[in-house]
Design a binder for these strands. Structure first.
Lengths: 155, 155
DNA sequence: CTATAACGTACCAAATCGGTCCGAATTTGG
DNA sequence: CCAAATTCGGACCGATTTGGTACGTTATAG
């Protein structure tokens, strides 16, 4: 399964590109050209990010977009949330009726804990960090499960 | 955005229910009844889990399903992976062509790091842990961001 | 006043997801 | 040995969501 939607992925790419060239205003069209993404989609994403206060927009001729804050103070989580909405693991509130009756569903707090961990994983990385070359987090890779590096999709 | 698909959520519910009554064989129909989920869907999920080796199936009359291993040695990540496929954040290999040319896309290792963190968050919780009442992980909640506890969906 | 560029909304197409069904294989019980 | 029960493994379809587009409006620069 893929966690981030394609749009969110695009959003991070766009934001990262802007972070790479700070204090330079760039139009949606130019950004689409630079990232090789469909122009209309880029405009849509920029709009969403502007709505979330991540980027500043200047209208009219010679207008364009710019990061609203420094690249260090914008996290990947914010970009994703601006596009896909807030991050949540499950919508387990759907079937609580009977499930709650039989076992009282004690899983809820655990879901919340996992949720928090995921959110922090995304919040821990800033746009600035995304454009720094390598870093290579040491010995976090688990040799027992080969799927960690290369994402695979539901067969 | 919701990370886990509804199916994966169901799968965890089913697996958790089986973990609550270990070494008792149960048919797909009975499981559907107990969890109040559509019967055909439960059968499908059980099938997927059996394929992944998480549950053992016994055919024929008086057949049914049973956890293949102890509830402590099965993680939520495994259940999710059995249903939704392996967990990956992005499919960023789609647009690498031009993106790689302009900035060499140094974001990849960072994605991998985030990916690993998410995977571990899911792998850290076993089915056994899911059925233990509360635990309440202490002071992990961030008071600054109110979205952490209650999952919200894309508006 | 005109050209440019963001804004907002509405809209369409397509892919994926959630869910159903049916036939085949297998085991228990009579 | 036969019949009922139950999983297995496909194919299959409908509907929600997602990805992407288009158009008209607003605002700024020259």
């Amino acid at each position: 399964m893929v966690i981030l939607s394609k749009l969110a992925d695009y959003g991070v790419i766009i934001a990262t590109h802007m972070a790479a060239f700070p204090d330079r205003q760039i139009t949606a069209a130019a950004l689409a050209e630079a990232t090789q993404l469909p122009q209309a989609t880029v405009a849509k994403l920029l709009k969403a990010m502007a709505h979330a206060g991540l980027v500043m927009a200047t209208r009219g001729a010679t207008g364009g977009y710019r990061l609203a804050r420094g690249a260090k103070s914008i996290s990947v989580a914010e970009v994703v949330a601006a596009i896909d909405g807030d991050i949540g693991l499950t919508q387990c509130s759907v079937h609580v009726d009977e499930c709650a009756r039989t076992t009282y569903c004690p899983t809820r707090p655990h879901w919340a804990a996992i949720n928090r961990a995921v959110g922090q994983a995304l919040a821990a990385v800033s746009l600035d960090a995304m454009i720094t070359p390598a870093v290579f987090a040491p010995r976090t890779a688990r040799t027992t499960s080969p799927e960690a590096d290369e994402p695979r999709y539901s067969a």
